[in-house]
């Protein structure tokens, strides 16, 4: 399932195959890959640079690269616009939607993997296919009747709708690759099947759980559409707050870029430290065929 697992299984490429290659290929490869990296990174750098410019400097093409950095955009955004509230909201919703989805999704994935419940899995994975808009109207109506719209509960529920299928998908392919021998041995030694799951399989699944949890957190943090409709003034998440930035007549570009940096940087820092898990999760099931 994971890149880490497959990497171990495949032996290092032999030096034999390198021998016949021309000198041109390594140079070509370095040049193309360097260009690729630059193309992926440059726009992000541009956003970062612009967030340290005054709006006057952003409009001045002679100050594209040379300018006096300012922190005003950040102090404006973080100071005046309740941004710390939005950061907290995003974090809170992402945290609890991930936790609840793991509690619901992991045992389900386990059962679906061990009992080959493919049809049930299909039902859960349907959620990945359905356009979110088609759920929003009924949700809005139901939750408005329950007086939940604008509260955290409805945001957490709606984000779980994204997180749960993701977690089931990742954990199913994880449990598929987890051998059953240890569980069987534990049951012979007197554990109940559920006990074997809780005490044997679950501790062995920590890498899978980390993968599923991190990805689910990121997807919830980045989610825009559900919060756009369902969030209230006090539960607004960061993406919605950024979107509202541009509803005014003239755009405060410096502030907008600072706000965009504030939403992307935490997630990128998480990504840098958990790269292995993110890659494993995004490619889960891709090589099963």
């Amino acid at each position: 399932m994971t890149a880490a697992v497959t990497a171990q299984a495949v032996p290092e490429p032999t030096t034999r195959r390198r021998r016949r290659k021309s000198r041109a290929y390594p140079i070509f490869r370095v040049v193309v890959l360097t260009t690729t990296v630059l193309l992926f990174i440059a726009p992000l750098m541009w956003m970062l640079v612009a967030s340290f410019k005054t709006n006057v400097d952003i409009y001045d093409s002679s100050k594209t690269f040379v300018f006096t950095p300012t922190m005003d955009n950040y102090s404006n955004v973080l100071g005046r616009n309740n941004y710390f509230d939005f950061i907290f909201n995003s974090f809170w919703v992402a945290l609890w939607s991930t936790v609840f989805s793991l509690i619901l999704g992991v045992p389900a994935a386990y059962a679906m993997s061990r009992f080959s419940m493919n049809r049930s899995a299909m039902v859960v994975l349907m959620a990945r296919i359905i356009p979110g808009v088609s759920l929003l109207v009924p949700w809005y109506f139901i939750f408005a009747n329950m007086r939940l719209v604008g509260g955290f509960a409805v945001l957490i529920l709606s984000h779980m709708f994204v997180a749960l299928p993701l977690i089931v998908y990742i954990m199913m392919s994880f449990f598929d690759s987890l051998p059953t021998e240890l569980e069987d041995a534990a049951q012979v030694d007197g554990l109940t099947p559920i006990g074997a799951f809780l005490r044997i399989s679950l501790p062995l699944s920590v890498p899978g759980l980390a993968t599923a949890g991190i990805l689910s957190f990121i997807f919830s943090w980045n989610n825009f559409m559900f919060a756009l409709v369902l969030a209230g003034a006090s539960t607004k998440t960061l993406p919605v707050a950024i979107f509202n930035f541009v509803s005014y007549a003239s755009i405060d570009w410096g502030g907008l870029m600072a706000a965009s940096v504030v939403v992307t940087v935490p997630i990128m820092v998480i990504a840098l430290f958990t790269q292995k898990y993110i890659v494993a999760g995004l490619t889960a099931g891709a090589t099963k065929g």
């Binding site: 930035f245 541009v246 990128m268």
Partner: peptide
């Protein structure tokens, strides 16, 4: 690998704003 992971995890709304500028 790190470099190609960054666009992938970036918040789409922020990405939209970035390209808008």
């Amino acid at each position: 690998r790190v470099a190609i992971l960054l666009p992938l995890v970036a918040t789409p709304v922020a990405v939209g704003m970035m390209w808008r500028l």
